[in-house]
């Protein structure tokens, strides 16, 4: 019996040749971005990020992209994969149709700096404008008490990792970049509906701006793009409701 086990063939894990077509842009050389294709050997359990690593480490070291934790929580590697905004570190090869090439490009609507890297400053600028920090006048002895139900109201929007997948999938944000964008509204929602915070009306006032929540066209692109599964469009609708009612 023991012999039989020893003789069993070691199962080889099947690998695939996957073609990635990446939109490259080197500002020092290129006038316009160009599509470049790469063939990489991948396993079904690999992620797009692994493919990018393989290209950068073994094929072309000049390929530029952001990534930090590589486990879907730092929000660095949002990119457009087959036309949808995804985190490269959470997109598995097995979930893509690898009989076709996989198109990878930088997120849209933000200034392209190099390859898959965009200038995130306009995104963070509108994030800062909604005052994403707790504002409370009292100083509690120990902690600020909150009931489970009170916490539940904004639980979904605490999950944001600021990857910009939602904002850069929003067609209204693409048009002129003046719109606050879904991510800023999600993070405003997180404080507006927080019972410990006292500046809800300030934030509602900020988002009542010409470029605020009313520009949202409820296309649901943001909800579809969010790698954290936040119901972004619903959060925006709740902010609109709070504005119409005049209370949180």
């Amino acid at each position: 019996m023991a012999d039989h086990v020893a003789e069993a063939p070691v199962p080889t894990i099947e690998s695939f040749t996957v073609t990635l077509i990446i939109r490259r842009f080197d500002p020092e050389v290129d006038e316009e971005p160009r599509w470049v294709d790469y063939d990489v050997e991948m396993y079904a359990t690999d992620r797009i990020l692994d493919a990018l690593h393989k290209i950068k480490w073994e094929v072309d070291g000049s390929l530029t992209f952001r990534r930090s934790c590589a486990h879907g929580i730092c929000g660095s590697d949002a990119m457009r994969i087959n036309g949808r905004n995804r985190l490269a570190c959470k997109t598995l090869i097995k979930d893509l149709d690898i009989s076709q090439p996989i198109y990878v490009e930088a997120i849209k609507g933000l200034p392209l700096e190099k390859d898959l890297v965009v200038d995130m400053e306009p995104f963070f600028e509108s994030y800062r404008q909604i005052q994403p920090f707790l504002q409370a006048s009292s100083k509690p002895e120990k902690e600020r008490i909150q009931s489970v139900a009170e916490r539940e109201r904004f639980d979904d929007t605490t999950k944001c990792i600021l990857c910009a997948a939602c904002t850069s999938s929003c067609p209204v944000f693409w048009t002129d970049g003046q719109y606050f964008g879904p991510a800023a509204i999600v993070n405003a929602h997180r404080f507006i509906f927080d019972s410990r915070d006292e500046a809800a009306n300030v934030r509602l006032d900020i988002l009542n701006d010409k470029e605020g929540v009313w520009r949202c066209r409820t296309t649901f692109n943001c909800t579809e793009a969010c790698p954290r599964g936040i119901q972004v469009t619903q959060a925006i609708a709740e902010v609109k409701q709070a504005m119409i009612r005049g209370k949180v």
Partner: peptide
């Protein structure tokens, strides 16, 4: 203060009423 007051456009803002309409 982490946020310097951003210049906001003055004047009436009818966007909310436009949306409700």
């Amino acid at each position: 203060s982490p946020r310097a007051a951003a210049p906001r456009r003055k004047g009436a803002n009818w966007e909310k009423w436009g949306w409700i309409y």
